[in-house]
């Protein structure tokens, strides 16, 4: 195996600095899943069309499948695995669990990441704002949309989520 195109890269993920050997062109998703063993960000289409791979990068929702490693730099990456230490992600997850907001659950990682990014904004977005983002960036095939939107309603009805 040739390793000519591999470089040493530092990546800040879920509060820890990781040093890995990878191609700078490799996708963030591939590195998270295979080098760091973080399977929470799912492989969906690999083309940025379905949103299953969405993670938080400096608090913004990014589709990790078409985010090359070189573009991440020193940004803080947060994945589903860090939900217990990330206030907004935890609040979103609680609401989704409470509403049993999934069928197969494959798309939910990305949807929760996008919703978490939205509720970190100030002022809080409206239901319509959130639907617009989900419509643009996420696909669900099971038809779990009604319960996902009930989870969003539950979240918006709750007290504002304090920053971590």
């Amino acid at each position: 195996m040739s390793s000519a195109n591999l470089a040493n890269i530092n990546l800040f993920v879920n509060g820890n600095m990781h040093s890995i050997k990878a191609s700078p062109d490799a996708s963030l998703l591939s590195v998270l899943r295979h080098d760091l063993g973080l399977g929470g960000a799912r492989i969906g289409c690999g083309l940025g069309n379905c949103g299953a791979c969405t993670v938080l990068v400096d608090g913004r929702a990014m589709q990790a499948c078409n985010t090359p490693l070189w573009s991440v730099g020193a940004s803080a990456v947060v994945t589903l695995e860090a939900h217990e230490t990330h206030a907004q992600l935890q609040a979103v997850r609680d609401a989704f669990l409470e509403e049993q907001a999934a069928q197969c659950g494959y798309c939910i990682n990305g949807i929760m990441a996008s919703v978490a990014a939205l509720i970190m904004q100030s002022p809080m977005p409206t239901r319509a704002d959130i639907i617009a983002v989900l419509d643009e960036r996420h696909l669900c095939r099971c038809g779990a949309h009604p319960r996902i939107l009930r989870a969003v309603d539950r979240l918006l009805a709750a007290q504002p989520v304090s920053a971590s």
Partner: peptide, 19 residues
């Protein structure tokens, strides 16, 4: 409540995630 959702909402859970 669904038995499979807590893990699917936490991290690796699907066949694609097996490593």
């Amino acid at each position: 409540t669904r038995l499979d959702l807590p893990q699917k909402f936490s991290g690796a859970a699907f066949i694609q995630d097996m490593n």
